[in-house]
Structure formats: C-alpha cells, structure tokens
Amino acid sequence: MSEAGNTQPALEVSGLCKNFGALPVTQNIDLTLYPGARHALIGPNGAGKTTLVNQITGVLKPDAGAIRLFGTDITHATPERRVALGVVRTFQIISLFLRLTVAENVGLAVAAARSIDAKPWGSLRDDDRVVEGVRELLERLDLLSVAERQLSELGYGQRRLVEIALALALKPKVLLLDEPAAGVSSRDLGMLLEILTRLPSDIAILVIEHDMSLVFRFAHRISVLVGGALLVEGSVDEVRANQQVRDVYLGRRAHV
C-alpha cells in the first residue's frame, strides 16, 4: 500500500442531503472510512441507512453534498463506474439470480470483474481463470458443497453468503454490507461472523446491522443514524456508553 493509502480516506461522504418529498432521509451526513475500516452504521428502522448506501452506490442521487473515493469525486458517477472503481455493496433484501446455479451467480460477478461479460463465444466453464476465481470464492465462503445447486434451493443463510461472494468477486475497495445477518438463523450467525472477520483486511467495510452482538464483535467504529441525521459517531465503547444512544435506539432493544 502506498504512503498516501494510509492517510487518504477510502470513502469520504460530506454534507450529504436527500429528501423524499417532505421527508428528510439524509440530513447533512459526514462519514469517513479509511482503508481497512470496520465501521458499523446502526439506527432504528426507517432511519435512512439503506438510502445512504443507495446514494453511495449511485442508485439514488443526493440533493446536496459530495462523495469521494480515494480523493476522487464520484458524486455524479454512474453505478457501473463506481463498481469499476471499487464501491461494492450487498443487499438487505437479497438480490441474486434465482434460476442460476450458485457457481453461475458468482461466475457472473467474476466475469463482470474481468470485463468478459460481453464475449459471445467460449464458455465460463472452459475459462480456467474464471473457474479458479469462482472456486476460491466459494471455498472462502464455505459454499463449495452447494456450487451446483440452483440458488432458489438454498436457505437464507447461504444466500447471504452468496451475496458476499458476489461482492468480493468485484474486488471491492469499499464494501457496503446492508444487514448481512438479516434472516440468518442464530445457528448460522457464528459462521457468518467468522467469515466476515476473515475478509481481506485492506478493504474498508461499512456494515449496517441490527444484530448488536455482531456489530460489537465486528466493528471498530460505529455511527448512529436517527431520523436521517447522525446522532453520534465513535468507538464501540464510546457508543455503548452513550446515554443518548441507549435512550434513542439501544434502550429499546434491551439486550445490549
């Protein structure tokens, strides 16, 4: 990593604002992630967490503010461009290819990352580098045993892992995980956490999560979003100790 890499933020969101009609969902948000960050974004339902991710990935346009990636302004870049630059997300509502196999799901992402998705001849199954890339990702996410299954045959926990595999295939520099544990059974939660902690350490990761045990074990820093505005940002201990946070958010979910 270059010298600048240590000081330059991977992702820098500044003064971001967005209204849905009269509803302010993003209110002057600042957020900085350095390479290797493990940052959690928490907040009650409807706080605007997913909306923020949608603006970072370019699916929604902010009304004001700027988004920078390693110093480059990407506020107006297309979603495809941002992916190419290394901004990658997973989806709160799992968004995959139901009638394709697990390997094909991941293969699509590997092919896209290698820019061979428009090649109208040959086959991914005969492309050693793609097959090896898919194998490696499936192994890393404990999915090899289900490689040949149609995605629709998988349970929720494994689908979450496929989501992450697709994201990793795109070689992210900034990874946005929108509720990776939603719908995952408590039995699979330990495995998920283990896989998350094994992710490459140079990627900056922002995780949105309601499961506090996962947040506290995974994240180093936490931002709390309430009603579209940042309530507080700090280390895990600071946020845990913050009375306002306990009142507004954590207090309601007593099991902290």
Binding site: V83, V88, F97, L108, L166
Partner: peptide, 21 residues
C-alpha cells in the same frame, strides 16, 4: 458464452446485474 450467461442474469435480475458493473 459469457454473454449468454450475462443476458440470463439480466433476465433474472437486471438491477443486480447493473450493480455488478
């Protein structure tokens, strides 16, 4: 071909395909 798989992916889920770049 890879193109063939890609268009099947678009059939299944265009939004996601777009976010694969």
């Amino acid at each position: 071909s890879p193109f063939g798989l890609t268009v099947r992916g678009i059939r299944e889920n265009p939004v996601r395909m777009r976010l694969l770049g």
